[in-house]
Write a protein that binds this DNA or RNA. Sequence first.
DNA 1: ATCAGCTATTATACTATTATAAGTGTCAAG
DNA 2: CTTGACACTTATAATAGTATAATAGCTGAT
Lengths: 354, 354
Amino acid sequence: MISRVFGEQRMARSEDGGDRKPLERLGVREIAKRVGVAPMTVSRVLSNPDMVAPATRAKVLEAIEAAGFVPNRLASSMKGNGRIIGTVVPPLINSGIAEQVQGMSDECHQGGYSMLLVQGEFTTEAEEASIRTLLGWRPAGMILQSFVQSEVARQLLVSSGAPVVEISEIKGRQPIDMVVGVSNFETAYAMTMHLAAKGYKRIGFVSTPIHGNDRLQQRRTGYHAALSELGIKNHASLEVEVPITAAGGAEALVTLTERHADIDAIFFSSDTLAIGAVQECHRRGWAIPDRIGIAGYGDMDLAAQLYPPLTTVKVNRYEMGRRAVRQLLDRLGGKQKLATITSLGFEIVDRESA
Amino acid sequence: MISRVFGEQRMARSEDGGDRKPLERLGVREIAKRVGVAPMTVSRVLSNPDMVAPATRAKVLEAIEAAGFVPNRLASSMKGNGRIIGTVVPPLINSGIAEQVQGMSDECHQGGYSMLLVQGEFTTEAEEASIRTLLGWRPAGMILQSFVQSEVARQLLVSSGAPVVEISEIKGRQPIDMVVGVSNFETAYAMTMHLAAKGYKRIGFVSTPIHGNDRLQQRRTGYHAALSELGIKNHASLEVEVPITAAGGAEALVTLTERHADIDAIFFSSDTLAIGAVQECHRRGWAIPDRIGIAGYGDMDLAAQLYPPLTTVKVNRYEMGRRAVRQLLDRLGGKQKLATITSLGFEIVDRESA
DNA sequence: ATCAGCTATTATACTATTATAAGTGTCAAG
DNA sequence: CTTGACACTTATAATAGTATAATAGCTGAT
């Protein structure tokens, strides 16, 4: 039966080359007609099977199966049963974002939601446009990276009524609704102190472009706080900003070591950068950590396998994604007393590169 | 004006802890009432501004702005103007998929579409479930990885009437509709021959789990074809399957070199594996490429920066994602004479690791 | 003065599902 | 023999935007 439709469709398509329309609209009405019940009964078989008599249910399910009917979620969403979680993410390449998206996706799937994903830059206009697009789909919940900059976008989010999770630095400005994240300040402070404790005297800091990114700002602030506590001043020349690529990391290593011959350790705000720097050391024949100590951030898969293994900050990004979705689903499920701020822990993974 | 709504919403939310509802439903009808025109006029301002007199248009836009109105795309999609591209992707971590998703996302965005992303495994049941979920949103087009296994899913896709792109091996079974990809057979054949031409005599092959993945199957077949042509037989013991992690690559290197002391090169089906193997060589103090040659697949960012730089197969995954979406949009735009198969080129990037 | 021809606007109806209220039918208790 | 309770089913209306056809208002030609 389905295979007949198959054939017809193929023909229809090749005839008019793109003007597609089903031969007979397949919906709860059509299924209901075929079974001889009201559309509402079919609807209930799909969403509240217990409210339908077993015999009727079986007949309906059989007809659904035979027709290859997939219920239209657009229509059900219009009645307020939206099952979309919207999210804006920065570029997936070379950052821990992919793992986070994986976590979000898994948790969404488990909860019966679909994930609408928009990639956007960290500029105010792009952010606002992305959020507008997502809100157009009337998502049940929204997940955003970093704090939302655009005031207009914040207002749109609030008046949409959807619960919002910002995955971000947990300290700082007032969240729109809920926050999930780590204290980037703490992580960077801890790593810098860790390096100092290991005997490094002059510690550089390399980050990817900081502008508009709360997390990176907090990491830098944490680094600064540690240096202050160590009594180190005038550290501006110990910092560089480079693009988030392995080449960027290599370049930063060169820049900093040329600037300061006595620099003995560098803390990179991302493993990708640190790994690039390690390769540059190999090229130069520099021993790690004897000539220079290298520390990263993220503990990506390769970090432990790297030669030498990378000392880094481990943050469970996958779990972060899951928790963000979980917060939304808990709220949607009417759970009371929901934490506004969820702080995940972190670890300083001490390996051999520093 | 918006800020007032802001305040009210915050209060409403904190009172009932989750039971959210807009104070007055904001839609084209509401905007129309405020401006004193028909809802249809508001609708046209949004989708066909040229059909509305400039003076009216300005008044409507002003009201939209003031109210912070975001049109409901669910409703417009129901009239057949769907703007969703659905896609099922394998896990984003440690594969080139992230770049591809980036490409898809960019192109979708440019064409005014949103991307609904579902992560699914390569099992038949999971695939079918993911496709069902996506079709429920009545997407304007669908993009799938590898060929769709499930016959039921294939039929559902066809009868949905949406154009479908499979990003996959370009040779092999009949596509549902269109294919974008490279000949994985050619790439693997070319790399194997390249290694042979460089003088390697005993070339191993390491891949991630092949089952259900056309691309990997074709790569292996290409490797086999090259070996045959080189007169090498009984190569089964030169092959290993490992998980797609750096540790997997290291493990494969150990397994193969223990099995065959004379193995002099290994072709990995992914850069991630190859990079892991290179680290293992460093740990063992093996010179690359003198002790063993290492080749990867994908040319990820790190490949060129690696020490030693990685010889690999370069496939433009970002472009692949873009082209897949472009095919869909061209078809939706009614373009005739659309290629059924789009084959992208590849390069053997000869660096120092082999 | 009338009417075609045009632009700008409006009224109606439709998309697919589902919340709600109203309606069946059956059985047991009064 | 009615009544109430219950399980199941159906009719109606609502969600929000838009295609379509109809209408209003205006210009210029007949």
